[in-house]
């Protein structure tokens, strides 16, 4: 399969043309440096994203509390993770940095609160 990517490693923003077969990246072009090839490999074979969202809470002041993953998580898990977050109702108080969801689906990624809420 052929796919175009914009490299986000440096401000040059190279447009990288890639080709993959079932399991591996077979062709990369358009990148001006080796970091581009590495980026393309990661993006195509095991892409990861930091996920941010708001979670419903029992607080009058802040009925939705911002949360994020503490590191990037596999793109395949994003949709499930969002579903899980939206279905929770958080009891306040909460503290910034404290964990809402631990080790989501054994990914090693936690969801943490981005904001402290007193009540």
């Amino acid at each position: 399969m052929k796919k175009k990517l914009i490299c986000i490693i440096c401000p040059a923003g190279c447009t990288i043309e890639t080709e993959t077969d079932d399991a591996d990246l077979v062709k990369v072009s358009g990148n001006k440096c080796p970091r581009g090839a590495e980026y393309a490999r990661k993006e195509l074979l095991s892409p990861e994203r930091t996920v941010t969202a708001v979670v419903p809470s029992d607080s009058e002041v802040l009925p939705f509390i911002p949360v994020r993953t503490d590191k990037a998580i596999s793109r395949n898990l994003v949709s499930q993770l969002l579903k899980t977050i939206y279905s929770i109702k958080v009891k306040t108080p909460v503290k910034r940095g404290s964990v809402l969801i631990e080790n989501f689906q054994a990914s090693g990624v936690n969801v943490i609160f981005s904001r402290s809420v007193k009540n």
Binding site: T50, T52, P66, R68, R96, G97, S114, R115, S116
Partner: peptide
């Protein structure tokens, strides 16, 4: 490090 807006503000 990369923070979210609310964390940065806090």
């Amino acid at each position: 490090k990369e923070l979210s807006g609310p964390e940065y503000a806090e």
